[in-house]
Amino acid sequence: MKKDVLLCGVGGQGTVLASKLIAAAAMAEGNTVHSAETIGMAQRGGSVTSHIRIGEEIGSPLIPFGQADIMIAFEPAEAVRNLGYLKPDGIVIVNTVPVRPTTESLHPTGYDGVEMVEYLKKKATCITVNANELCAPLGSSKFFNVAVLGVLAASGRLDIDGETVKKEIMKRVPERFVESNLKAFEIGGTYACN
């Protein structure tokens, strides 16, 4: 398999765990994987990305523009910010719930994500997910990072077995959170079907 997956969001949303799980699952199925993360200052509420590159013969740790098969956006404006990475026939899975920058409270511009989602729909094939609704049964939208992997698996766009992802969740998530994360993954899967 050769696939480029871009995750983007805001520092603190848990993109790093999501990217580790995708990479680990792809590897468990015998693929060669490379990935790259934003680490440092940006983790304090700034824009963050993870680039996952599945397949042999890859040079750059970052996905070149116009080449991502899948973009998983944890935030609508971040999706638009990174849209240039997407292939023209790529797919965007996007959380429609905006994270307003702190500057927005100080100097409101009225940013609410709606315009972003509309723009995304105009430009690319989108699966829109409302993280608050999706994660309501879990009690915290912090589980979106794993729930969205359920959406991804159900979309059929990434050739990885859901069971493999579950196994990696069991391996990589601290024990006391395994159960809730497995539930998050399943909820994501059914959400996508509805």
Partner: peptide, 9 residues
């Protein structure tokens, strides 16, 4: 594209 909000850390 619509104006994307800046997001300083």
């Amino acid at each position: 594209a619509p104006t994307i909000p800046v997001r300083p850390p």
